Computed example of a mutant assay.
Amino acid sequence: MGRRDTTTRPARRVVVRRWRDPRLLAGVVLVVGATALGARIVVGADDTVEYWAVSDEVRAGDTVGPDDLMATRARLDGASGEAYVRVEEELPERLDALRWTVDLAPGALVGRDSWAAGDASRGHLPVSVQTGFLPPDLGAGDLVDVWVGPGPGEATDLPAVRQASGLRVLDAGTSETLGASVTRTVVLDLGSQTLGGEQIAAIASGHVTLVRVP
């Protein structure tokens, strides 16, 4: 039998490479994850745009004031984003020359059709209309054509004549009893239109029908 080698060999040290240390790997994963999440949040924040919103309730027909507006950030895509007014944009008119065309609740974004030029120097036309000769759900902001023609019981051989077109409703009025009929006084914004004396006389004395238009 051969002789056993009784020489004591030095013990090998187990070397743990630091990059394989589970704790180090977990730390790296956490750092990478946090970095990716932070980058995503930053990218998301960069996608938001400042839009105008209303700070309080506004009503159609009222003049737009600086206190009505506040800037708010939102992320809107495509046509949705184009439908609202950005803070960076130039307004179509000075604020006191704009009027609200719709009612808006606090915090609502201002759409491009939410206001229109209509300063106080422009005319307002009050029109008395019998119930049944205007849309029952007519409201502020609607556009109407004003027709004048024969009333109930009058000769019908005369055609109705359109005296004004595309006027915006500022106040749809409330129903009132006038004699045997129920009427509403509707206030219309003439905008840039000018009515002649004959047109105004016809509207004031004739039988008026309001036709809502797109």
Rank of each mutant, 00 (worst) to 15 (best):
S55P: 03
R59L: 05
A83P: 00
D142Q: 14
V54N: 11
G65T: 12
A120C: 01
R86F: 00
L76W: 10
R20M: 02
V127S: 06
A108Q: 03
G44M: 11
A140S: 12
E88T: 14
A71K: 10
A116H: 12
G81I: 04
V42E: 14
M70L: 15
L24R: 14
G139S: 09
R94M: 12
E82Q: 15
L109H: 06
I41M: 05
D62F: 06
V29E: 06
L134P: 10
T63L: 05
L76P: 06
W52T: 02
M70Q: 15
T72G: 08
G123V: 01
I41L: 10
D46L: 11
D62P: 02
V28A: 15
V42C: 03
V102P: 01
S114G: 13
R40L: 13
G61P: 01
D47P: 12
G27S: 02
R20L: 11
E88H: 10
W52F: 08
D142N: 12
P92I: 06
A120K: 01
Q130H: 14
G81S: 07
P92L: 11
E88G: 11
R13L: 02
L125P: 00
G81M: 11
E90P: 01
V64M: 08
R20W: 08
E82A: 15
R40G: 13
A83I: 00
D67Q: 09
Y84R: 14
L30I: 00
R94I: 14
L69N: 04
V85N: 09
G78S: 14
S80K: 04
R12C: 04
D47L: 08
L138E: 10
A117E: 07
P92F: 13
V29Q: 07
L76Y: 00
V87S: 09
R18A: 15
V87P: 05
D103M: 10
D62N: 15
V54E: 09
L95Y: 02
L125M: 03
D56G: 12
D47M: 12
A83L: 01
G65I: 03
